[in-house]
Amino acid sequence: MHQPAIHVAAIRKTYGRTVAVNDVSFDVRPGEIFGLIGPNGAGKTTTMECVEGLRTPDRGAISVLGLDPKRDAYALQKRIGVQLQEAQLQKRIKVWEAVALWASLYQKPGSGDRLIEQLGLSDKRNAWFMSLSGGQKQRLFIALALINDPELVFLDELTTGLDPQARRAIWDLVRGIRRRGKTVLLTTHLMEEAERLCDRVAIIDHGRIVDVGTPAELVRRHCPEHTVVVATDDPAAAMRFRDIPQIDSVTSDGLQVTIRGRGDDLVTQVIQRLAEHRMRVIDFRTETPTLEDVFLRLTGHAIRE
């Protein structure tokens, strides 16, 4: 395998007596979207800013594209793109001016005009920063992060405060970044965002990494139970599901039977029983645990908006 795009080994960062990041380690592979997920204040941003070279960890080692983010800061800055949480620009800077300034800072910038167009900001070219909507500001920050055609892009709480429509548009843009072969490290406290966007995630809580994996892996590992809800007019339905292997519970409520179990083939088993006994099915649905459930199980508390 290639060397990882990012290698973080046992970093720790304290502010006074508060331990913001504690013994955090993870690898990000080239070409993937890797998410640091957890509630606000979990240490996601601190971790990311250590990787970006904006902060120095008290302990531990970080390697980004084979470079040291602190010592090789200027060499690295040419190859990475950064979007910061809650960043602002000068109120009265125009969109094209910001893009042109950023472009002027790199030796081989991409086309600013093309980026402005790709990010749907063409009719805002001459607008002041202060007049942009939240989604437009974020799109501008993505444009700035991409101006040097970086190999690695950092996106910190990219869609916080955006409406669902703007959020979806941004997700498409991020997938576009991956399609162009770039690596993305992002943070989010939105589990839905992580689930839809990230190839792999690290769950962070109270400054520690709780687990790392693909969203599907994490769900299988920590929330293996599946739920099938069947509505049928067969009065003996509940009884017929009791002998499915690895079943947790079967409960019925009127016509509706709820079957919970942790076997991988729970759904198959239920369908087989339905066919075997020629039950008339009025409704059928499955409930799969999400990353949200995994988080709840691993940390013992729900993620806060």
């Binding site: 970006e52 904006l54 200027y74 800055q77 950064v82 910061l84 960043a87 602002q88 800072l105 790199y106």
Partner: peptide, 16 residues
């Protein structure tokens, strides 16, 4: 104002 708005930090995360 630049510091409070995160503008300084944003500029600093560039080759400037």
């Amino acid at each position: 104002i630049y510091r409070e708005g995160g503008i300084l930090k944003r500029l600093r995360a560039t080759p400037l």
